[in-house]
Simulated scan of single mutants.
Amino acid sequence: MKKIIDAHIHLDRYGLESVNEYFSADDTLQLVITVSKDFNSCMNNLRLCLNDRRVQPAFGFHPEQDLPSDRELEDLFNWMAAHQDSMVAVGEVGLPYYKKKDSGGSPLNNEKYIDMLEMFILHAKQWNKPIVLHAIYEDAPIACSLLEKHSISDAQFHWFKGDTKTIERIASNGHYISVTPDVVYKQKTRDLVSAFPIGQIMVETDGPWPFEGPFQYKKTHSSMIHKSIKTIASIKKLAINETYQLLYQNTFAFFSLN
């Protein structure tokens, strides 16, 4: 069986009556890493996990939103500390590229976003957890510098976009990338896969984010990953079964899954 793991999904946003409803659509889907947007999202993902262990949660605060208050952030860290045994990673965390772009420049609190990211990095190190990053384009080198500062190698740059120099930096530091179904129809993503070591690649959907190309107008589901893997196998000139196995093992090892 060509088993898959969805390395990055927002499962709590699907409004499922049962987790089995999602998994039953593809019997090759073994596990999903469901990332969190905020405190409520963390709690919802924990509930999903407690109901079905095929759901593996990451807890964090998505950067493309207003900063939490100091008290809210403290409450989140305290809750994460209390539930650290239930999470496989810290995430989704990072820097607000799109929020900055929409505002026409740097947010007034950009340094505070950087400080918050560093706090999450420090907590991930304290809890011995990998970290799931939203850090693209010019934000990625900032994230790399913070990871280097604190000697963190277990980082996943999800749906990464950036220049060649940063791609090489991420790879040489032992970090991972996770690739969405847009690899099927976007040349930039295909070029990223071509340049990156196969041993440091995972596959994801970032669902329920909608995709184009052959997936246009379709509800995002982890089953789309099969087309991603076939494309990656073609780019890397690997046998399809070997590609399935490598991507599965990469994800399984990175998140220390059981």
Rank of each mutant, 00 (worst) to 15 (best):
I5M: 02
I5R: 00
R13G: 00
Y14T: 06
S18H: 06
S18L: 03
V19G: 03
V19E: 13
E21N: 10
F23M: 09
S24F: 13
A25N: 11
T28C: 13
L29G: 03
L29R: 00
L31Y: 15
V32E: 02
I33R: 00
S36I: 03
F39K: 08
S41L: 08
C42M: 07
N44C: 11
N44M: 14
N45L: 09
R47H: 14
N51F: 12
V55R: 01
G60H: 03
F61R: 09
Q65T: 07
Q65F: 08
L67F: 07
S69Y: 08
R71I: 14
E72A: 12
L76Y: 04
F77D: 07
F77E: 08
W79Q: 06
M80P: 02
A81V: 11
S86M: 14
M87H: 03
V88S: 02
G91A: 07
P96T: 05
Y98G: 07
K99V: 07
K99R: 15
K99C: 07
K100S: 15
K101A: 13
N110T: 10
K112P: 10
K112H: 13
I114W: 01
D115F: 14
E118M: 11
I131M: 07
I131L: 08
I131H: 02
I131V: 15
V132T: 13
A135L: 09
Y137I: 07
Y137D: 14
Y137Q: 11
D139L: 12
A140D: 04
C144D: 06
E148Q: 15
Q156A: 09
Q156Y: 05
W159D: 04
W159A: 08
F160E: 01
F160K: 01
T164W: 09
K165C: 10
K165E: 15
T166C: 02
R169N: 12
I170V: 12
I170M: 06
N173M: 14
H175L: 10
Y176P: 06
I177C: 07
V179D: 01
P181I: 04
D182I: 06
K186V: 07
Q187K: 14
D191T: 12
V193E: 05
S194N: 14
F196P: 02
P197L: 02
I198K: 05
Q200Y: 04
I201C: 00
M202V: 00
V203P: 01
V203C: 03
V203H: 01
T205G: 04
T205Q: 06
G207K: 01
P208M: 06
W209F: 14
W209D: 12
P210H: 08
F211L: 10
E212N: 15
F215E: 02
F215Q: 04
Y217N: 14
Y217K: 09
K219E: 15
K219C: 11
T220P: 13
T220E: 11
S222A: 15
S223N: 08
S223I: 10
H226Y: 00
S228Y: 00
I229L: 00
I229P: 01
K230R: 09
T231P: 08
T231K: 12
A233H: 05
S234F: 12
S234V: 09
S234G: 10
S234W: 10
K237W: 10
L238C: 13
I240K: 01
I240F: 06
N241K: 10
L246T: 14
L246W: 06
L246M: 13
Y248N: 00
Y248W: 04
T251C: 11
A253M: 12
F254Y: 03
N258C: 12
